[in-house]
Design a protein around this nucleic acid. Structure first.
Length: 592
RNA sequence: GGUCCGGUAGCUCAGUUGGAUAGAGCAGCAGCCUUCUAAGCUGCGGGUCGAGGGUUCGAAUCCCCCCCGGAUCACCA
């Protein structure tokens, strides 16, 4: 990249001019701000001390030196200590020529012989359908995986399904008691929604019992613990862990309903996995690890039989690893799962895409694995993302304020349909094509809305204001792509040859400068596991293209060479929009 | 209370390792379709970057302290 070259050469300049060694990473090189003339800006304030001259004079001397050293430099100007470098248009012309047909600009081929990066995301529970929080998780995981792959890393996408545990027993118990044998077929309900209904029913009946017990004079804590429904659910979990046949067949049947439902949602979101782990297959390995740690004296047992780890020396608390009745808890199976994946894939890194409400859990997980002497403990990275909040605050499944994933997807596609038809578009499409388009646009609105925000930050989702289709949105970027494709369709067969000494218009050069940045944007967002940087890039690019499109004509440009140059810029832009949106898991249409 | 994360325009968000006069979108107002797609483009208004101190040529960015919001500290997951 030219910025690196500039930094390095500036180092040489300072050495030659002032006899002082400066490392390239000590030289601040930025893109020149729009208000000023130039392509790159070198900040020379830090070197004024070395040169013992004013910042202006230092900048001018370095500028002269660079201009002689680098033939790409056309000229430079100095304002205060800022040295603005202007490159020759031939430099940009060559960049355009080299890349405008490249279908994988910015993408690196997979490097051979590298250990994979394993990324876990989605991780649903089988007691209720997916909601908006899961959507964020799925989109983030998918996009980060794509971005890492774009840098040439082999990636393994895994899903860890929480298919067992007390919460699953709750919906099973409620179904057993009150369903009269209801199935997805008999009710016409999506399987995950049907099971979710029984989970909600359990909570409702349980609450009634607790209230009754409290009315009879029990305190809240005792009531919660001793309500018959809770005791029954716990008994069911014990039976399950003991391998009881009847419990297992009910469990398998209900889970199969849920999986069918989940798969449908994943498909609509365009998400897939290389490997699915089930907690039911990892928890016993977890138990073994706990046993191992107990024997090694890393864990201890209380009188009631429960097993704990003392983390107070690391400023944390005591943490339960096995209940007194011997059943396992969340972290037990996570220990087993980490072990299993490490054995299976020997990854260089294990990324867990999990909400920030579980920061403590992952801190504990890593610590425990370290104490057990597992070297892979340090390969674990918790990609901790913020919550999706509603205007009233956090989504609460028990209070029914959860935004359901399937409902939301359906609504956003309906909105896309309304807007598209209102604009008088898609009239020549058949029913299938039209639906594909509405779906593509609606999902883009939803996905972009979520991914454009820094993963660490909470997102505020206001259902009544819903999601925009104008401005900094997915559909705007899609629209820009469709616009370009339309121009390219109308152009006669063309071929572009780079022109020497052509002067670019500002609008043309601006796009080229943005495109030039794309490879480093991918690199940066991969480093920080942050898709929002790609999203912001795509928006900047689309915005600049629209200005270009508005101010200059392409097909009506009388100068043929200039027209061809603009076609090349257009094709290049469409290509990079497509690639960057793909990294976000968003498709772009040929027309809209 | 301990730990962690956040606070930038009315709202939603950008702001690379400290760099020029802190930027977009939405909402509001005013313009631009006989010309390549108006889901677009242009203009206007809108800011004590939570408060205060420090570090230095320079701080939204780094350090300290306080205020506010959130998460978490379960025999839930």
């Amino acid at each position: 990249m030219f910025a690196q070259l500039l930094a390095q050469q500036t180092g040489y300049a300072i050495e030659a001019l002032y006899h002082h060694i400066v490392q390239p990473n000590q030289v601040p090189v930025n893109k020149t701000k729009k208000e000023f003339t130039g392509d790159f800006t070198i900040i020379t304030f830090p070197f004024a001390k070395i040169s013992k001259k004013s910042p202006e004079l230092t900048a001018r001397e370095i500028g002269e030196w660079l201009k002689n050293a680098l033939p790409e430099i056309e000229s430079f100007n100095v304002i205060k200590g800022y040295l603005n470098i202007i490159l020759k248009d031939d430099f940009w012309m060559e960049f355009l020529d080299k890349n405008y047909r490249n279908h994988s600009f910015g993408l690196n081929p997979q490097k051979q012989g590298q250990a994979p990066v394993l990324i876990e995301f989605s991780s649903p529970n089988t007691n209720k359908p997916l909601h908006l929080g899961h959507i964020r998780n799925n989109l983030l995981g998918h996009s980060v995986a794509e971005i890492l792959e774009a840098t040439g890393l082999p990636v393994v996408r895994v899903n860890l399904v929480n298919d067992r545990g007390i919460h699953v027993c709750k919906s099973m118990l409620a179904w057993k008691k009150w369903s009269n044998g209801e199935t997805p077929e008999s009710s016409g309900l999506k399987g995950d929604h049907l099971v979710g209904n029984y989970y909600v029913l359990f909570e409702k009946k349980y609450k009634e019992e607790v209230n009754q017990l409290k009315a009879n004079g029990l305190d809240e804590e005792t009531a919660l613990r001793t309500a018959p429904l809770m005791l029954e659910a716990q008994e069911m979990l014990r039976k399950w862990e003991a391998g009881d046949a009847e419990t297992h067949s009910l469990w398998e049947m209900m889970n199969s309903w849920v999986y069918e439902g989940f798969n449908e949602t994943y498909k609509r979101l365009g998400i897939s996995f290389d490997k699915i782990y089930y907690e039911s297959e990892t928890y016993s390995l977890g138990k073994k690890i706990v046993e191992e740690g107990f024997k090694a004296g890393v864990f201890y047992q209380k009188e009631d039989g429960s097993v704990w780890v003392d983390l107070t020396s690391d400023n944390l608390d005591h943490k339960l690893l096995l209940r007194s009745d011997g059943t396992s808890v969340y972290i037990t199976q996570d220990l087993g799962c980490a072990e299993l994946r490490y054995q299976e894939f020997s990854p260089q890194k294990m990324i867990y895409v999990v909400g920030n409400e579980q920061n403590y859990h992952f801190e504990v997980l890593k610590l425990i694995l370290q104490r057990l002497g597992r070297t892979y403990a340090d390969k674990i990275f918790h990609l901790s993302y913020g919550m999706v909040d509603l205007p009233e605050g956090k989504m609460k499944s028990r209070e029914g304020t959860v935004v359901d994933a399937d409902d939301l997807i359906e609504e956003i596609i309906l909105t896309a349909r309304e807007i598209t038809l209102e604009l008088g578009k898609a009239t020549d499409l058949d029913e299938y094509e039209a639906h594909e388009l509405f779906s593509m646009i609606g999902l883009a609105a939803l996905k972009y809305f979520i991914l454009k925000v820094d993963p660490r930050k909470n997102i505020l989702f206001n259902p009544t204001e819903s999601i925009d289709f104008d401005g900094n949105t997915g559909p705007f970027i899609q629209y820009t792509h469709a616009r370009i494709r339309s121009v390219l369709r109308k152009a006669n067969p063309w071929s572009f040859t780079p022109q020497k000494n052509m002067t670019f218009y500002e609008e043309e050069k601006e796009i080229l400068k943005i495109l030039y940045d794309f490879p480093s944007v991918i690199k940066q967002s991969a480093k920080e596991l942050d898709p929002s940087q790609i999203a912001n890039f795509a928006y900047e690019l689309a915005r600049s293209y629209n200005q270009f499109y508005h101010n200059l004509s392409i097909l009506h440009e009388p100068d043929e060479q200039r027209m061809l140059t603009r076609l090349a810029i257009s094709q290049f832009t469409a290509q990079v929009i497509r690639i960057s949106m793909h990294l976000l898991g968003i498709d772009v249409p040929e027309r809209m």
